[in-house]
Design a protein around this nucleic acid. Structure first.
Lengths: 217, 217
DNA sequence: GACTCTCGTTACCGCAAGTAACATATGCAG
DNA sequence: CTGCATATGTTACTTGCGGTAACGAGAGTC
């Protein structure tokens, strides 16, 4: 039958194209991990053993490729975070596990992290904003996910949904900034950082007393 | 006297050069505010009524110009924040004032904010990291300043310095991410956001009860 | 008048993003 | 076997940007 044949062919080609896409993404991954976020399309194409136009046929433009790449890693990271977040444990324990999961991830693959968070936003031509929608998406998605979990598990009274979103994004930002700083300076061990942040979230800032024994005051 | 003459001349030229530099920076500011962080050197030079090489003579490279630009705004913002942070008021009031100051600033000039936080890290040639050291510096500086204030005014017991830095960077990150999200979606008013974040810092996450009345659980 | 110093220009290089046009293999209709 | 449609791949090009070299003009100094 012609139709089935055509369908089979289509399907085969589709899957072949998807396999190809995966290969290209893995090649791009290697290059980005090696050269940082500034990796050029030529370099990626060379690593994949092909030339530029094929990349463009598959991903549209550089932003598309980067978005596809970012989505892969983002999905992976979000899955681990969700696991830590949904564990059947005490709230504080879950918070600490989530923080630790995130920090362990960025510690294990700082290049990936840098790519996801500090991508090149070079705007070629006059467009200016069609490229580089990666760093925001990851933080946003993490914030939204956390907001969901908060909203469905913590009793916040009226206006809980809005408050949960504020907290979700706020906590994610706290985790992100502290992690970025920690990764750069390594001022303490990971458990120490986790504990410090959890203490902050647990209201130690409000509970601590004023310092009065200071010099001359 | 020749020396005084030469000195006067030198000083005059120095001040003239500095005035020029200020003019150039203001022109660059206008362009960046109009075209976003992807503004080209050509565009900036045109806005200033001159051509590229002069910009390069003054600022070295694009990174230099952006750094100078960023420093201006960063200094201004840090000054306001320090004022709010050092006000003679209750701790919670100070925290809310600081949050509000920051949010008001990014609300008033979102383009400046975007430039400071999401700069183009385009790596020309093989260098890759000589350009674009702006976004990290602002967050880092804010984090360090906040850490100082915390350390000198809050009694945190042993290990206070390290803990203060963790908190400083964490709180700044929380403020930043929440502000970024809020600026994009405008899900609530500024005072609501301030209050939500302050509540988070005040331990409401730990104090809130579990939600048990959910569907099927 | 020759020297130098700063401000300014035009014209160029290198490089990267993105595109157009061409080449080739494969499967199917007649 | 010939036509043709489709996906895959190539070379060669255009455009635009960051950055630089080489040159020119005014002003003070000896």
């Amino acid at each position: 039958m012609e139709t089935t044949q055509r369908t089979d062919q289509r399907a085969e080609q589709q899957s072949a194209a998807e396999r190809r896409r995966r290969e290209l993404l893995e090649a791009a991954d290697r290059v980005v991990l090696r050269d940082g976020p500034g990796a050029s399309m030529n370099a990626i194409a060379a690593e994949a053993g092909i030339t530029k136009p094929i990349l463009y046929r598959h991903f549209g433009d550089k932003g598309g490729l980067y978005a596809a790449l970012a989505t892969r890693h983002t999905d992976a990271l979000l899955a681990s975070l969700r696991a830590a977040l949904d564990a059947p444990a005490e709230r504080r324990e879950r918070v600490e596990a989530t923080l630790d999961t995130y920090l362990a991830a960025i510690e294990a693959r700082p290049q990936v992290y840098r790519f996801l968070m500090h991508p090149a936003e070079g705007s070629p031509g006059d467009s200016g904003f069609d490229v580089g929608r990666h760093s925001a998406p990851l933080l946003r998605r993490m914030g939204e996910e956390l907001a969901e979990v908060i909203e469905e598990r913590v009793d916040l009274g009226p206006g809980s949904q809005q408050l949960a979103r504020v907290w979700g994004h706020g906590i994610v930002g706290m985790m992100h900034a502290a992690g970025d700083w920690w990764l750069g300076e390594r001022p303490c061990t990971r458990p120490e950082l986790v504990r410090g942040l959890a203490d902050l979230l647990w209201g130690r800032l409000a509970a601590a007393g004023d310092k009065v024994g200071g010099p001359g005051f």
